[in-house]
Design a protein around this nucleic acid. Structure first.
Length: 454
RNA sequence: GGUGGAGUGGCCGAGAGGCGAGGCACAGGACUGCAAAUCCUGCUACACGGGUUCAAAUCCCGUCUCCACCUCCA
């Protein structure tokens, strides 16, 4: 079976192809100046879903995800780098800020069972690569040194500009940043910086043929994808907000240099909303993976919530749905663990759903109906669940955590058993309340009592 | 102004022109000493106005509302 995905540029669902027996994926990674919130994670999950699906379908997959640790400007009028700003706040070296949040990023990925990429190139370690690309763009006539010493891409030199976002150069409103002193060297408001002259900046700058400075934000993705994926990207993944200008600019840079369509498919994940607004620092509605864990939920419950919604739709997250998913996850794991030595067996309906533009909501629906099907053997159900889990990544075969009972709880349980045997219901109910207050859930049947941790 | 989307029951959300996804919540029932869990049953919807069609949530036209992007963003 083939995987088909919605391509933003053609606005059509298209089949994924491999290049030299490998599907090459590039995923826009984090700017490591703060913790990634769950909205960011939703996009990273999209990459994971694609890679897991391709792997199950038998493809070799190569994934590169960049770590932006330089060049990403904040909206501050001083045009301050996000990392430098954070380094002042935390009173530590900017690269220490980067390494700290990079580590958090990997921890969060692991909590969501997102498999690691093959390579995580850092912008700060790819400066020569970017300079090389900039030099090529100047030589080809797509870039110029501005009056301020910065190097700019000449947007009008690239004929297909705007194909991803639908924006036309002549319709683009000059942005408010046009007035910025540090970008005053542009010839045209839609041009963008490839290399920014250092100006007054003393930290995080590098020497270059155009003088000391630092790279623009868009250039790293072009440089890295071309270098580490051998000049061609089969699937490019990122958040919908990156469609413009980031991906539009990236495409112009990459295509100008390679001379052909560098990226086959542009796949964009829609935004996660919280309380009806886009989750963002400025809206003040940021939820971190850590918050989910602190609420007592399995982070994979969040993964299930995401999977219950199509990646191409905005979704409004709330705690109730996470709670519901957490329960569902427990139920499925219980089911899976009832069968020893179960092996995955393909469920074609599930594969088909996933292959048609990652229809995970339908896949989940199929699982729910399998679960309820009284005519199916439990071994069959579990086999299909394990198969689906290779793609969904919910860790369904995880054994339930068995925390030891404290001697005190054990004593109460014994007393309660005795009370029930004697049909002393008042005492039995009192003890149950006691046990529940200490985190146990009690399930009675006529001849026994079962317990588990809440 | 330009661009990309979305409006579905109390809530969240799938939806492929034709026998009403699913989940949560709620209500009844089975089971339980009572609970819990589980199972069964019930509940109901397509923003508005036109149009096409034997048949529209789905296709077409218009209107309204919301979200997102327009050089920070996943």
């Amino acid at each position: 079976m083939e995987l088909r995905l919605y391509d933003t540029k053609s606005r059509e669902i298209q089949t994924v192809h491999e290049t030299n027996h490998k599907v090459r994926m590039y995923c826009c990674g984090p700017t490591v100046y703060r913790d990634a919130h769950v909205g960011n994670m939703r996009t990273f999950l999209l990459s994971d879903l694609i890679r897991r699906t391709l792997t199950v379908l038998g493809y070799q997959v190569s994934i590169v995800q960049n770590i932006t640790d330089v060049g990403h400007m904040s909206e501050d009028f001083e045009a301050e780098d996000k990392l430098l700003a954070q380094s002042k706040t935390e009173h530590i070296d900017p690269l220490a800020v980067a390494r700290k949040y990079e580590e958090h990023f990997h921890t969060d990925l692991a909590l969501l069972n997102i498999l690691p990429a093959d390579k995580y190139p850092k912008a700060s370690e790819c400066i020569p690569l970017m300079q090389d690309l900039i030099a090529k763009l100047i030589a080809k006539g797509n870039a110029y040194v501005g009056s301020d010493g910065s190097v700019y891409f000449d947007a009008s030199s690239f004929p297909g500009y705007g194909m991803i976002s639908g924006n036309r150069l002549d319709a683009l409103k000059p942005g408010h940043r046009f007035e910025y002193t540090d970008e005053g060297g542009k010839k045209f408001h839609a041009d963008w910086a490839l290399w920014k002259a250092a100006g007054h900046r003393t930290e995080m700058i590098w020497d270059s043929p155009w003088g000391p400075g630092f790279p623009g934000w868009h250039i790293e993705c072009s440089a890295m994808s071309i270098q580490f994926l051998d000049g061609h990207v089969d699937i490019h993944v990122g958040g919908i907000d990156l469609r413009f200008p980031h991906h539009e600019n990236e495409r112009a840079q990459s295509n100008a240099v390679t001379g052909n369509e560098t990226v086959d498919l542009w796949v964009h994940g829609e935004h996660l909303l919280f309380q009806g607004r886009k989750m963002s620092k400025s809206a003040g509605n940021v939820v971190l993976i850590r918050d989910v864990v602190e609420h007592g939920y399995d982070p994979l419950a969040l993964r299930l919530v995401f999977l219950e919604n199509r990646y191409r739709s905005q979704m409004d997250l709330n705690w109730e749905t996470i709670a519901a998913a957490d329960e569902t996850l427990k139920r499925w794991r219980k089911l899976v663990n009832q069968v020893m030595h179960a092996i995955p067996s393909e469920n074609v309906k599930i594969t088909q759903a996933i292959c048609e533009d990652l229809d995970t909501p339908r896949a989940i629906q199929i699982i729910r109906s399998l679960e309820k099907d009284h005519d199916l053997e439990i071994e069959t159900k579990v086999g299909h669940l394990l198969f689906a889990d290779q793609i969904l990544g919910l860790d369904l075969s995880r054994k339930e955590q068995v925390r030891e009972l404290t001697p005190e709880l054990e004593t109460i349980l014994k007393s309660r058993k005795k009370a029930r045997d004697e049909k002393n219901w008042a005492e039995s109910d009192r003890l149950r309340q006691l046990l529940e207050d200490q985190g146990l859930i009690i399930r009675d049947s006529s001849d026994r009592q079962d317990w588990q941790w809440r």
